[in-house]
Write a protein that binds this DNA or RNA. Structure first.
Length: 633
RNA sequence: GGUCUCGUAGUUCAACGGAUAGAAUAAGCGUUUCCUAAACGUUUGAUCCAGGUUCGAUUCCUGGCGAGACCA
């Protein structure tokens, strides 16, 4: 309808205004809830053009639209806004059209280019936590949304499977894992622990041992004993101690941290871990075997977690395969003058012209930094997928600068697809107690959290659900759908960009703007339609629409634009908000009219059709958010 | 020190530059002879500060204050 009016106005501009007008003059918006109207045209832009008052301009537009646009009942001019009221016939026609297209709002599959969406990207030294949940739910939902608007989507994750962190777990396992009667060290099989949890446990063990050793070294330093400590470090420690005098507390704490860092570096256990990394890089068979074994445990654990989350991937990238990539491209870029070399041999890029600074892309010893890898990996992916058009990286906003630089470098290297790369940056998840810190043990484990929300859903459903006739297995599945659905909705309803607060109490709420609220509406309509033995049929235009009915049809008709906006802004939150609005409207309607028991057959049929369409739309939207839509609860 | 992000009811979140800034939550009251009350109705409360651009600013610009991240 907007489109119609827009085009008609453009065409009629000369006779109406006496001149051509530009399209951006015509601004539509949704009509406020508390005034009459279905669509609003902003009059202000025309005021200057017509050199008259907003009221007069509005009246002129009103007269013209009422006379020339079919489907318009009448218009009201108020406060510089032209509120257009559409006919009931128009809205019923809209409903019929939705009814006729089960995929209403969705674009033709694969009608748009291929996009790769990366999310999750865990380290293999510890289990997934709350931060990963936001990342994964967000990435997975964006992938679904992009697919719904027609893109072909490749879901991927990069697994950070190498480096000092995994060596720490490996070393600690070798050193500290008890040996059982059969001469075996701890494994997931003989302990019953999930693989990622077991490996994570030894990562913590490592840190504990490290702390103890570092403390001893610091105690020695304190008493002036610097035996076995290299000169340079000894000097640094003394300098820091000196600097500590007459400074404020904050500076002293920072210095203490630095000294602690130096001490940690001196510990035998960290040296050992570093040595292990060197052996790994040299493909030492023993280390390599340990590495594949322990990573294997972690993957088995992750798979379980992903299954519970209901997310999948099409393609996995492992950092152990990609960490050497990028050096060739850097050397090439150096030849082409994109990069420059400092006297020590390190390679840099100068981005000061772009308002950024100089960035290292290759160390003086020729080893790669993260940027090097990311350059190489990106280029590699376009080789893996020749029809790839762009990429979405779901990574926390602490990497904003990194990705800005990465995309800029790729551009400068001449890859035009760099313009289609997007950093889906999201804010940190805070706890009521503050930031999650692994050292302070305040990290919320993903598995524990999911188990907790399912347990809560279980208890609440037992209390008030409608479970007659469901088998035990079906009930368990339902609790999972409700628990996980609620958790996903809780994390997705917030604008991704924003830092958010995770309140454990609220995350399992069932009332208000929550996942279960939407699921409940879906379930209620499902049983309603079942009771009515609803069969879709042509909608007759026999009666006048009630306001509640019209509001719902209106909201249903916004589904497509809500989806488009969500895709454009990479924001599942927009879709979540849309669905919440829809459900609220429907609940009001449901409360105020009879549906199945409505005696007037034409009205009954209309309300059932409306309900069916609402149910369909809730199901579609929830599916895009990765949330199940149970038929009863 | 430099760069970036964010500041909205007590709290958690909304609002393409548009009308009287919406919800949820917490608290009170009310609604089941009728389709699932995990629902609905109803009562209270907010744009960090100072300028600027605009017919119109929570939104854009400048400066401060506050929170966070990144880079040395």
């Amino acid at each position: 309808m907007e489109l119609h009016i827009r085009q008609a106005l453009l065409k009629a501009a000369p006779e109406l205004f006496g001149c051509e007008i530009t399209e951006n003059l015509i601004q539509f918006q949704q009509t406020r809830k508390d005034v009459e109207g279905d669509l609003t045209l902003v009059v202000f832009p025309f005021v200057k053009l017509l050199r008259c008052s907003p009221q007069a301009a509005g009246d002129k537009l009103k007269t013209w639209i009422e006379a020339n646009v079919p489907g318009v009942s009448h218009c009201i001019v108020i406060n510089g806004f032209l509120n257009i009221v559409l006919t009931d016939a128009y809205w019923l026609e809209q409903l019929s059209q939705m009814q006729a297209q089960p995929h209403y709002g969705f674009a033709q599959a694969d009608s748009k280019p291929t996009v790769m969406v990366e999310y999750a990207s865990p380290n293999t030294n510890k289990p997934l936590h709350l931060g990963h949940l936001r990342n994964i739910f967000l990435g997975a939902a964006v992938a679904e949304i992009l697919q719904a608007v027609g893109h072909k989507v490749v879901r991927t994750q990069v697994i950070n499977d190498r480096g000092i962190h995994i060596c720490k777990s490996m070393l600690a396992w070798e050193k500290f894992s008890p040996v059982n009667a059969r001469g075996e060290r701890e494994t997931p099989a003989n302990t019953g622990l999930k693989g990622d949890k077991l490996v994570g446990k030894y990562y913590v063990e490592f840190d504990r041992a490290l702390q103890i050793e570092a403390k001893e070294i610091m105690a020695q330093w304190q008493s002036g004993n610097f035996s076995d400590t290299p000169e340079a470090i000894q000097e640094a420690v003394l300098n820091f101690e000196q600097a500590k005098q007459d400074k404020d507390e904050k500076a002293q704490a920072a210095i203490d941290d630095k000294i602690k860092e130096l001490a940690k570096n001196q510990t035998a256990i960290l040296q050992e871990a570093k040595h292990m990394l060197v052996r790994w890089e040299a493909r030492d068979p023993q280390v390599y075997l340990l590495w594949t074994t322990m990573n294997g445990w972690v993957y088995a654990g992750f798979d379980q977690t992903y299954a519970q989350m209901g997310v999948t991937f099409d393609k996995l990238y492992y950092e152990s395969d990609t960490f050497l990539l990028g050096k060739d491209q850097v050397m090439e870029g150096l030849k082409d003058g994109v990069f420059y070399q400092k006297t020590d041999g390190s390679v840099w890029i100068d981005l000061t012209a772009e308002g950024l600074d100089e960035k290292l892309v290759l160390r003086s010893d020729g080893t790669a930094v993260y940027m090097t890898q990311d350059i190489g990996t990106a280029i590699d992916r376009f080789k893996d997928y020749p029809d790839l058009h762009g990429m979405v990286y779901t990574v926390g906003n602490e990497q904003d600068y990194h990705f800005k630089v990465l995309f800029l470098i790729l551009q400068k290297l001449g890859y035009t697809w760099a313009n289609n790369c997007f950093h889906l940056s999201y804010g940190m998840v805070d706890l009521p107690s503050g930031k999650m810190k692994s050292r302070e043990g305040t990290v919320v484990d993903a598995d524990d959290l999911m188990a907790e929300v399912i347990e809560k859903a279980n208890a609440m459903t037992q209390e008030r659900g409608h479970l007659e006739g469901l088998s035990e297995a079906e009930r368990q599945a339902l609790y999972t759908q409700i628990g996980i659905g609620g958790l996903k909705y809780y994390l997705l309803k917030v604008d991704p960009k924003k830092r958010m607060l995770f309140n454990p109490e609220e995350s399992i709420d069932l009332t208000g703007n929550t996942g279960p609220f939407l699921q409940y509406a879906h379930a209620r309509i499902s049983t309603l339609l079942e009771k009515a033995a609803y069969q879709p049929s042509a909608i007759g235009a026999t009666t006048a629409l009630r306001p509640e009915e019209k509001e719902i049809i209106k909201q249903l008709s916004y589904f497509e634009s809500a989806l488009q906006e969500a895709a454009k802004g990479y924001s599942p939150a927009l879709l979540a908000n849309y669905t919440y609005e829809l459900v609220k409207l429907y609940n009001t309607f449901y409360q105020s009219v009879k549906i199945v028991i409505e005696p007037d057959e034409a009205v009954r049929q209309l309300r059932l059709a409306l309900s069916a369409e609402v149910r369909q739309t809730i199901a579609k939207a929830l599916a895009l958010l990765g949330i199940a839509a149970p038929a009863r609860m």
